[in-house]
């Protein structure tokens, strides 16, 4: 059957991402930028792809409107933004395990929750994430302190610059979609998906 075959292919891709994050671990973790901008996204994407867009029926009632899943993802991601936790995941096996288990779970939680969010909430979340990325990037550049013992001050600058670039680039993409998005995609001028409450009412 076609659908199940494509699900299988996506799961293989998820497994490839996951294994890549682990096998190339030393190389990815050698630099702060590849640690956070390559390994972290690989693990998140692995979880999201493996989970697929549809939440299992038994879990649905625990995640109405995507609120539970978003809370879980936010809790995991907040933990992994701590410099000392990033340091520890390089040297300490328990933290490394927590990373390889936790980030895919966060990815899955996002995949199962973001589509359930009301359109407005998703746009708010997207803009909020960009604003936070920009603020964090600026902070990394402005702080005289070296935050991670395992990484150089110059790598902190690289990460800060990358965060700023990512924030500005995503903002332009977001604006382009809002202004010139293809018909059928939700834009500000054409409110799309109704709130789940309205849809099910």
């Amino acid at each position: 059957m076609k659908p199940s075959r494509s699900v299988g292919a996506v799961r293989v891709l998820a497994a490839v991402f996951f294994l890549l994050a682990i096998v190339a671990r030393e190389r990815l973790e050698a630099q702060l930028l590849t640690h956070l901008f390559v390994q972290f996204p690989l693990l998140l994407a692995a979880g999201a792809l493996f989970a697929g867009p549809r939440i299992p029926a038994w879990l649905g009632p625990w995640n109405r409107g995507g609120v539970g899943g978003l809370a879980l993802a936010a809790a995991i991601l907040a933990f992994w933004m701590l410099p000392r936790v990033i340091d520890a995941s390089v040297g300490d096996g328990r933290f490394a395990f927590a990373k390889f288990a936790g980030l895919p779970v966060a990815g899955a939680a996002l995949a199962w929750s973001l589509p359930l969010l009301p359109w407005l909430a998703r746009q708010f979340l997207a803009l909020q994430t960009m604003a936070m990325a920009a603020a964090t990037g600026w902070l990394y550049l402005a702080l005289p302190e070296r935050l991670c013992l395992r990484y150089l001050r110059s790598e902190q600058d690289e990460l800060g610059t990358a965060l700023l670039i990512a924030a500005v680039a995503s903002l332009f993409l977001w604006l382009a979609r809002v202004l010139w998005g293809p018909a059928g995609s939700p834009t500000i001028l054409r409110p799309g998906r109704p709130f789940p409450a309205e849809a099910s009412a």
Binding site: G60, P61, W62, R64, V67, G68, A71
Partner: peptide, 9 residues
């Protein structure tokens, strides 16, 4: 469902 979601959250 609302109750369980609130609990899980």
């Amino acid at each position: 469902g609302t109750g369980r979601t609130a609990l899980a959250t």
